[in-house]
Write a protein that binds this DNA or RNA. Structure first.
Lengths: 393, 393
DNA sequence: CGGCTTTTGCTTGACGATCGCCAAAAGGTA
DNA sequence: TACCTTTTGGCGATCGTCAAGCAAAAGCCG
């Protein structure tokens, strides 16, 4: 046995070669031939094919090494567009992006998910169509739609399953409904998963194992393991809001159980605690406003919420061994108090091996994480090797 | 857009076709042509290739539907052999298996891992060679070696990283050492990961998301998500032994922290508690013996350990949403007490969506889980599509 | 027992993809 | 300006795959 871990290069089609260019970096034909091990002429044929589909374009000449300067080619993200939809309990955010998830147009609106799928989805379709029009692009350029919903979703079918805050959506064929309006593939997932994906793709593409934690009205997380979003057996992975924490002891939770993390550390719970102390707070935004205004009690409450979340995340770190935890959601916007509380407990409670390379940071995508993730999910589907091969065939 | 989620079939080489036969089920040429979408002549050529390599063999005739009965072909697991090595703190188990992880020969020995890599690995190589000889097979048939070690391992390099109970092994090039003795690829991983793999492949191949929990001297787990073993950023995933549990409060743990699960629920901890109560127990095996002898205090202690473990697993269930939890390790052999305690807390503490399809069972592979997993890891490497293509080229 | 059905093994020609080679192009360098 | 280096595009050759066809094999059915 000569080569133990190296095998002959596998056959790679045009779609596979295209994956190499997904990072946006310009490459010469010679580069690609060297990477794939295929002949220059084969690469040239692939390049022609992808160019005629508009997916790649010449990107100037590379520095010459003495001879004729090589032409480089790079991914053309503007070739097509996708519609990204981030639906929350009471808000909606839509964006039209190119294939690199660059936002071309964006809109925000108050929208009650509880109004049901018919009302909400036709509003989404109408608004999406208008939004595409504002970019000056045709609907024919729209190749995919990504949707995030505030509840558990079976990703393979795009159907919500027993969603607590949107019961009317149970088992609704969301992709089917939207495909009647858009001539495009429709992908649906849980909103926190979408945010994890958005944060991962836009801010930390090189990290293979990370956890995204959303702290807002509720608490949830999305898991990236081995570079991919992991959804669990029923798409319910990451649901850490109802893990028991010691400090919640007998506090009742809206889920019917007692002692849940959400019952003491969610934006809602913190607001309720502050209101009970006589402060004017009824939701997460109020808590953030109080902290920003310098209210000491609010800051302390947020920091304590961070500690409670940290006690759960310490267990998550031991279990998943991520190299990064990203904290998002509106409560994370209240300065460093939340993350300070989280760090305090996580670094205290986890084993050195797991924490020595662990970073805990706040979201870089912030409010855009949702739509960026929805966009990334849609783009991934459309730019998969098999999809590319089918497209240029 | 006609087909939204279906794309043209991707090119599939002989290695890919072989994957279809990995399950051991016999298939006709016509079956394979229908599945891959390739021409019968192409399939016939692939079959010839794989047959001449000995990887598949005719498996009798299928039932005729009126005409000539088709010949079926099936994977020939006996084509090659692998060596599976499961090293614990004080014991070693070696097995020679075929490519379906059927055990052809097996041996067990007391061996202190603390003796260091030189002593241990040369013993492993010597014993492995002898074990191969007892099967009547040649060392030339040995294509891969799988090794499980009791500590964190960087799987890609096969090097242990800061292993607490085997400090002399830190950053040792285990594959390099064993490759000097065997002309075969060497794969190394953590022992609990190996057990998870063994249990998954032999007992639950269709389950995509499961958690394997080993309860012995220590407590650890291995994660299967989306059908694959997940190791985390540094190969330390699944290390749940040092997650905090309320009932451990101020109990000191060998890791230097207080309140760890292992400090109250490991076999060692239970034995210590029973010893303090005047019973004759100094390790996990003693605890199991006491329970089997009908000792009430021991049974209650094991059940309480189950509850403590359950409180951690409830969090794991929320985070990973597995459809199966398998309990292994020697303490799991003490009847149903451990698993009863685990079930009690997990079903009480987790959300209905996560538990409605969740099963919690004891290991079917039992003591063999380790070597079966080591075998599976080695086999997987050798039978990957790329490896097959290289083999028959 | 003979005809029918179905699968198999083999061959053939066609087609497409890929490869290696070579001449032309385009810039740097002496 | 002439030479050199390197890239590029085009060409025929080769290999793998496919579709089709055909005789033989082998069990089923009447």
């Amino acid at each position: 046995m000569e080569e133990l871990l190296k095998f002959a290069p596998r056959p790679t089609g045009a779609g596979d070669m295209f994956q190499l260019l997904r990072d946006g970096q310009p490459r010469t034909r010679a580069d690609l031939a060297a990477i794939t091990g295929q002949a220059r002429s084969t690469i040239a044929a692939r390049i022609d094919l992808l160019m005629s589909a508009g997916l790649i374009a010449p990107a100037g000449e590379a520095s010459s090494t003495g001879g004729r300067p090589p032409v480089t080619f790079a991914f053309s993200p503007e070739a097509r567009i996708v519609l990204a939809v981030d639906l929350g309990a009471t808000h909606a955010r839509l964006a039209v992006t190119d294939l690199a998830s660059n936002v071309l147009a964006e809109t925000d609106a108050a929208l009650a998910i509880a109004d049901g799928p018919d009302v909400v989805l036709s509003w989404v379709a109408d608004t999406g169509e208008k939004l595409v029009a504002t970019t000056g692009r045709s609907l024919d350029d729209l190749v995919s739609v990504g949707v995030g919903l505030p509840g558990p979703v079976e990703h393979s079918s795009g159907r919500p399953i027993n969603p607590p805050i949107m019961p009317a959506w149970d088992d609704v064929d969301v992709p089917g409904i939207l495909q009647k309006r858009f001539n495009a593939s429709v992908l649906v997932d849980n909103d926190v998963n979408i945010m994890a994906l958005g944060e991962h793709r836009t801010a930390w593409p090189a990290v293979t194992d990370m956890l995204f934690v959303k702290v807002a009205t509720g608490i949830g997380s999305g898991i990236i393991a081995d570079g991919e979003l992991r959804r669990g057996a029923q798409g319910a992975a990451g649901d850490i809001g109802h893990v028991a924490v010691p400090s919640a002891a007998d506090v009742p939770c809206r889920c019917g159980n007692v002692g849940c993390l959400e019952a003491v550390a969610s934006g809602q719970a913190v607001a309720a605690a502050l209101a009970a102390a006589g402060l004017d707070a009824s939701n997460s935004a109020d808590v953030v406003a109080l902290v920003r205004a310098g209210d000491l009690a609010a800051s302390q409450a947020v920091r304590q919420a961070g500690r409670d979340i940290g006690s759960v995340l310490a267990a998550c770190v031991s279990l998943l061994n991520p190299s990064l935890i990203v904290i998002g959601g509106i409560v994370a916007e209240a300065g460093e108090h939340l993350i300070a509380g989280i760090r305090e407990i996580v670094y205290q409670r986890s084993l050195p091996l797991a924490t020595q390379h662990l970073r805990i940071v706040t979201s870089q995508a912030r409010g855009q994480a949702g739509v960026l993730g929805a966009s990334a999910m849609a783009v991934d589907h459309v730019l998969s090797p098999a999809a590319i091969d089918a497209l240029i065939a």
